[in-house]
């Protein structure tokens, strides 16, 4: 496949970035998008051009490291996949492909397609946990959990923290990300104890870090590689209001 790649190049956080065009003639439909970039980088390295930097690790859609804005979509075309699972079968010979980093105030660009997502960690540190010490747990069956709720908690817990929701949102809101964790823990009896404090701490931290608000367009849900549902945001709001009036 012959491709024209327009890739965002930016030396570091302070430098000004720009699109650079690469004509690349070495892709095949059997490749994943990242393998295609690897192949292109090999060419750049041999030509003594600085290769395009991007985050990636597990390459099986679970670590959440990779994330590029491809042709106007986080993780590119295709539903419910990460960039590493994006196949070149989705493109055709002669295509022009635009590749950008996540764009959000809270995710500054580090280099090229790498952004700094430590803001996500900071939100989790603010309260995304159940305070239980090692060794203090009762037998797992001491507290039964309704299967329906356990399954729902699991569906919220599959978030991989990639940041596609923020990148997709016109407000760069982290509501889907935050609500997934809030929901998981709010649905389980073990998590109810700290629910009031947790939701306030995490929401406050989210606001403080410069993420925008939610205006219910649903772009986050549509682009989430793990199909985290908007229902989580509704639950977050409910938890938050209850916490406020308590």
């Amino acid at each position: 496949m012959k491709l024209t790649l327009k890739i965002w190049r930016q030396k570091n956080a302070d430098a000004k970035g720009k699109f650079v065009t690469y004509d690349f003639d070495g892709a095949s439909p059997d490749m994943s998008f990242l393998e295609m970039l690897d192949a292109m980088n090999t060419k750049l390295i041999k030509a003594r051009i600085d290769p395009v930097a991007f985050d990636h690790d597990c390459r099986e859609g679970i670590c959440g490291a990779c994330g590029m804005y491809i042709n106007g979509h986080p993780h590119g075309p295709g539903k419910a996949i990460t960039t590493c699972h994006l196949s070149m079968r989705e493109f055709k010979d002669g295509d022009t492909i635009y590749v950008e980093p996540w764009r959000a105030k809270a995710f500054p660009v580090v280099k090229d397609l790498i952004v700094d997502r430590t803001a996500f960690d900071k939100i989790q540190i603010a309260g995304g946990f159940i305070s239980t010490n090692v060794g203090s747990a009762p037998d797992s069956h001491a507290i039964p959990v309704e299967k329906r709720k356990a399954d729902e908690a699991f569906d919220s817990a599959v978030c991989i923290g990639c940041g596609a929701c923020v990148a997709a949102c016109k407000n760069a809101s982290a509501m889907l990300f935050v609500s997934a964790k809030i929901s998981q823990l709010a649905l389980l009896p073990q998590g109810r104890i700290e629910a009031t404090e947790r939701v306030q701490a995490m929401v406050n931290k989210m606001d403080e870090l410069g993420f925008g608000n939610c205006s219910n367009t649903g772009a986050c849900e549509a682009e989430c590689p793990k199909e985290i549902s908007l229902v989580n945001i509704a639950r977050l709001n409910r938890e938050f209001y209850f916490a406020k009036i308590q």
Binding site: F129, I130, T132, V134, G135, S136, A137, P138, D139, S140, I143, P144, V145, E146, K147, A150, D151, A153, F154, A157, Q184, L185, L188, Q190, G191
Partner: peptide, 16 residues
């Protein structure tokens, strides 16, 4: 037991 207490959503049966 520790994972369960931390809210790890392991698969459950209908009895919870």
């Amino acid at each position: 037991d520790h994972f369960t207490a931390m809210g790890v959503p392991f698969a459950r049966d209908y009895g919870g």
